[in-house]
Write a protein that binds this DNA or RNA. Structure first.
Lengths: 329, 329
DNA sequence: GAAATAACTGAAATCGATTTCACAATTATA
DNA sequence: TATAATTGTGAAATCGATTTCAGTTATTTC
């Protein structure tokens, strides 16, 4: 069913049908009714692609995620879709599986007028990213990393990490192991580590490089890094920069015959859904990923209205969730 | 940059540029090179919306999910996007938040030529769904429920649930509580329960309705249902139809002062990522959700080629993951 | 009652690509 | 060499909507 067909059935021109559908321009009441009747009868829905072409709006938002099958990503997407729906927008997902090449390809592809705005969940933002981003035809918002010149939604990684370290120190821990990730990820790899170090310094706790390990993002890595640390020394507490790393660490500790938290306390960051249901329930930092997704979407819509608002920086809140995985000394 | 501009720069007509881009029709070698040179220089990418309109193909797949921020959904989407990428397709996500009205709206909207195929993760499939599905202009595949006449990817819920029950019986459990969900969800609510009952019957274990409870899908429900069952009787084992329900049940048991698995064994279905890291590690059924997503996508592409293949029924495999949450009597 | 304004309508142009069609220039075949 | 077949090209139609433009009819205003 095309607009032409509706026009014929209603005995008017396509222009009139369009005017009725979009409620603009003059249409005599009886013709309007005739058109609406036909539309209802045949359940006519205009071809969105043709509309996109003519209106130069696709009513779609692109979301670039590093890995869709993670709790963080899916929560962000949930937030984005929620706001998108309010604006009558659809969400197009681009899953890069952590491949930078893919990320850049998607940036190009999506910008090419197939979406009206882009939200990129950043891990590593390279110069090549920036080169492409500078030429983008549509607004973009970066989520999770701070990129100057671009609107970014960032989690308060510094304060969160600092507070967590401080919390452990206030529980009288002094031998606090650190399990981090590669520095290519600015927010997680660099900022969270810096906050940890700064906090130790503030409280004059000496930094022991033997208690620090850097690896990937998965549970297994947490396990291995913990084992590695244990070969040198047994800390009284472990600060893992993600909950998954913390879970791996806990299991390594248990397998080494240590009790958590009685022998070693463990904390993470992220507050995955099951954190409270682990044994012991995990002390962690709650981030509002869904809210971040919403904020990102709202920022994109704002940029679509007025692209001079580029470059804003939004920081989301966090909350320390103290649970049983930490025991004071 | 439009095709016209490229044509002008290369000193040819838009038709020739199109012929070069799509590698069809005759083009003299020198003109082809001239065109390619210009395309490369200005990094021209054709407007996908205009192409969609002309070609009547959007190169997009629609996925309707009940809740994007669940592990199941995100794994399915990961599988779908993987296959989609191979075919040069993008994935459009429609998140219905379990709202049937939304589901039907999305079916209509997506079918309307804005995607070339639809994958619907079904929970409840009503007559209203069917009415809309019958009129769909594009192929659709249902994932997770069996709908006759439509290609469905189903998990072997019956056998999985039966095997799990059988496993408990073989561990000499006879008082096996059941925590299920509403029957509106055919696969989870009806089939899994039927298999449980059939298995009890097969082994002449008497069914005790006091040991059965029906609720929602979340951890809290599992907790409450377990508490409710405990007011009547303490079973030796609990069969929850999802891992989340099992986790809720475990916590209710622990809070009631019972030990898992020493006093009560608990099993779930789904094998969420953290199932092996819970305490105790959860005995459950591993479903290959990502594979289901891939199969669904492949089935959709097959239907796009040849719509007579409609109505196939694919069953995915499962694997019993026996972990420490079950103890033989 | 004439002039000015408002209400209404459809033909045609447009969005940016693809493809048909008609025709021209080569090359192959008889 | 004449004819047929192949190669090569651009103008124009097309996809399905929206919008401008020009023209008609109805309503005010003086």
């Amino acid at each position: 069913m095309r607009i032409k067909d509706i026009a014929k059935l209603a005995g008017v021109s396509p222009a009139t049908v369009s005017r009725v559908m979009n409620n603009n321009g003059y249409v005599k009441e009886e013709k309007r009714e005739a058109v609406l009747k036909v539309i209802k009868e045949v359940d006519y829905q205009p071809n969105p692609i043709a509309q996109s072409l003519k209106n130069q709006k696709s009513h779609m938002l692109g979301v670039i995620v590093p890995k869709i099958s993670t709790e963080t990503a899916s929560r962000v997407v949930a937030g984005v879709t929620e706001v998108a729906k309010v604006h009558g927008y659809q969400v197009l997902i681009a899953n890069t599986d952590l491949d930078i090449e893919e990320e850049i390809n998607y940036l190009k592809f999506l910008s090419n007028k197939s979406v009206d705005g882009i939200i990129m969940m950043g891990t590593e933002v390279t110069d090549r990213h920036l080169a492409v981003m500078d030429k983008l035809a549509v607004p973009i918002v970066i989520l999770g990393q701070e990129v100057k010149g671009y609107t970014s939604i960032i989690h308060n990684d510094y304060d969160a990490s600092f507070s967590m370290t401080e919390y452990l120190i206030k529980q009288h821990h002094r031998e606090i192991a650190f399990i981090g990730v590669d520095e290519k990820d600015e927010a997680v790899g660099v900022v969270r580590k810096k906050a940890y170090l700064d906090c130790l310094n503030k409280y004059a706790v000496k930094v022991d490089s033997k208690l620090m390990a850097i690896g990937d993002f998965d549970i297994d890595t947490g396990y291995q890094m913990m084992q590695q640390i244990l070969t040198h020394k047994t800390p009284t507490a472990v600060f893992a920069v993600t909950d998954h790393l913390a879970i791996g660490a806990i299991h390594a500790l248990l397998d080494a015959g240590l009790r958590v938290p009685d022998d070693v306390s463990v904390v993470g960051i992220g507050d995955i859904k099951l954190a409270a249901y682990l044994n012991p329930p995990l002390t962690t930092v709650h981030y509002t990923f869904k809210t971040s997704g919403k904020m990102a979407a709202e920022a994109v819509f704002e940029l679509m209205e007025d692209d001079t608002k580029q470059g804003k920086r939004f920081m989301t809140t966090f909350e320390l969730k103290t649970r049983a995985s930490v025991k004071a000394i």
